[in-house]
Structure formats: C-alpha cells, structure tokens
C-alpha cells in the first residue's frame, strides 16, 4: 500500500507554502518529517486530512487499485490534544468503537484498549476535562489507531509526554507500523533518527527524502542540517 502525492500545491495569499510536492509513502515504515519553523509541515498534514482545500495536485492511496483518499483512511494526531471534555475516557472510546464498528476486526473489551495504552483503571471513568495534558494526548492517539486507519499523521505527538511514556509510545508505534503508513512530524532530530525508518525534509515547499546510506547518526544529522539550511 502506498500514499501517492502528485503535484500538490498550496498557497496562502501570495506565499507558496507547498510548491509542487511529489512523493510516495509506503506501508510498514515510519517517516520522520522534518522542516524548519513555518516550512509547512502542518499545512501538508492539513491538506492530506482535507482540512484545507488544495490549490492543485492529487492525493491517492494505492493498494492493488489506485483510489482517492476516504475519511476513514486517515488518523491525525495533533500536537495539542483535542478530546471532547464532556465525556469520560470510557465513553469517548465507546463512541469511537461504535461509529467504527464495521472496520474494527476484533471485538475487544474497552478495558483492553486502556491496557494497551497504559491508562490507569482509576482514570478511565473520569471526565476528559480533568485529564492531564499527557493523558489527553494518549486518548487522542488511542482513538486514532482504534479503527486502524491506513495512514497515521502524527504532528509532534510525543513532546508532551514524560520520558517514560514517550518511550512507551515509541515502542507502540513500532509495534503497529507494519499495518500503516506513519508520517511523523517533529522538530527533534534525535527522535526522528531513533524512531523513523525514513527521513523526509520539507524545505522551500518541496519534499525530499534524505537517504540514510551507510552514514552514522552524526553524519546523517550534519547532512539533514545542511539540507535544511539550503536557501
């Protein structure tokens, strides 16, 4: 399965944020998306998620046949967690499981999902408005992977986690990557190098893959920085 982006363009006023993006993301890999502040990483995600209408180009999903993206194809985890604060964690999950029931292969008790995400028993029936920032983030991540969307867009999702949880999440992402195309946007290069299989940089409105070749981490870092500095 491949996510194919062809000639994607997006401008705001006269500023061309995404110039002419052509790229293929493949299933089974975690892509680390790096870019400088304001490079357009979130814009790219918003275009893929159809939050923004694109000015030109096409986005397809190819799995035996090539087709347009459906809403169910995408899970989008934002850096600021957004959860409905009037629900408890359990109710939120119940609702999500119900509206996705056609696509959830195995019927699992709700508590299994909480276990998977390591959310304490005590917290499961609290209102989400009383969850901490990190916990909200966990819930957001959980509902996004529950229905197993083909593509997972993660916009700096680990920054609000403490080191222990961040490590848990990294392992979790590695464990589910075989079934998904995961694009992971971050500013932290160490995280990208540690977690991601491929490094892609967004610079001057274009996407460019940085081949790892046989470089060690230090050489790769230098190469990425050089690429990002290019004007």
């Amino acid at each position: 399965m491949k996510l194919i982006i062809e000639n994607l363009k997006k401008s705001f006023d006269k500023k061309e944020v995404l110039k002419n993006i052509n790229f293929e993301f493949k299933k089974g890999k975690i892509y680390g998306l790096l870019g400088r502040n304001g490079a357009g990483k979130t814009t790219l995600f918003n275009c893929l998620n159809e939050d923004l209408t694109i000015d030109g180009g096409n986005i397809y999903l190819e799995d035996k046949i090539k087709r347009k993206l459906e809403p169910e194809d995408i899970g989008y985890v934002l850096s600021i967690p957004n959860v409905p604060e009037f629900l408890t964690g359990r109710e939120f999950l119940k609702f999500f499981i119900e509206i996705n029931k056609d696509r959830i292969k195995k019927d699992k008790p709700i508590d299994d999902y909480f276990e998977f995400m390591k959310i304490d028993k005590m917290d499961r029936d609290k209102l989400l408005k009383d969850y901490s920032h990190g916990m909200k983030n966990k819930m957001q991540m959980l509902v996004n992977i529950i229905a197993s969307p083909n593509i997972l867009l993660l916009d700096e999702p680990l920054t609000s986690f403490d080191v222990v949880v961040a490590e848990e999440m990294k392992q979790m992402l590695k464990s589910i990557k075989k079934d998904h195309i995961i694009i992971f946007s971050t500013h932290i290069m160490e995280l990208a190098l540690d977690l991601c299989d491929e490094i892609v940089i967004l610079n001057k409105g274009m996407l460019e893959q940085i081949p790892k070749d046989d470089l060690d981490d230090k050489e790769l870092k230098t190469k990425i920085i050089e690429a990002l500095k290019e004007e």
Partner: peptide, 8 residues
C-alpha cells in the same frame, strides 16, 4: 472543537 479534528 475537539471532535472535528478526527477525520472519521
């Protein structure tokens, strides 16, 4: 506000 960020 929160739910609309979920594509589904």
């Amino acid at each position: 506000h929160s739910m609309l960020t979920y594509r589904i």
